[in-house]
Amino acid sequence: MTLVHTTGRILRQLRHDRRTVALLILVPSLLLTLLYYMFSGPVFDRVALIMLGIFPFLIMFLITSIAMLRERTTGTLERLLTTPLRKTDLLFGYGIAFGVAAAVQAAIVSGVAYWLLGLDTRGSAGFVILIAAANAVLGVALGLLASAFARTEFQAVQFMPVVALPQILLCGLFVAREDMAGWLQAISDVLPLTYSVEALQEVGAHADPTGTMWRDLAIVGGAVILALIAAAGTLRRRTP
């Protein structure tokens, strides 16, 4: 039950912050529009599709690490840890709440991409939204984990280039994975974002969901669970 209440509390906080909600919805659509004027035809289709996965990952990573840091610095985290609330309920609460927000975001951005910008994929938009939402939850989970290692806001934002950027550089957007040096490919192999990008590319190239797409989604889901458990491990009730 405390999981439900915690999820509700986080969504309520988000609802009171209208500017953040507006930014969440507008920014990815505007950036996608920018891409539309930069590239055309098949190049736009390829880049925009991957971006639909990267935006929620990036944005949720940032929002979550700041939100969790705020819990720490305002003392609410310490107080929560003196209540019967389970640590996993808090972390999964964040995962679910921001996952819901991200799913809404992904649906709107995908709508803009398909209807206004003429994005063309062979597979259905539903799967694109599903993978984008999974990516958002991945961003949340990694953000929760990263925030454990940040004491200040300055540190927290810098985990973005540390944790998120390498994944974006090596996911196959800039250089196709087959063309990478072997050791780069090996690094790319262990980064979860690689698999969600591959899943999106599968949706782009095939009319029906493929086995590879499902396998990739499962890998992303596994990474989420691992990151959340690790984050619960770093959350200490007793602090110095």
Partner: peptide
């Protein structure tokens, strides 16, 4: 146990 921290520890963005 109920614990009141010295700095108010409530969510500023909730009522």
């Amino acid at each position: 146990i109920g614990y009141l921290t010295q700095a108010p520890s409530v969510y500023a963005d909730l009522t």
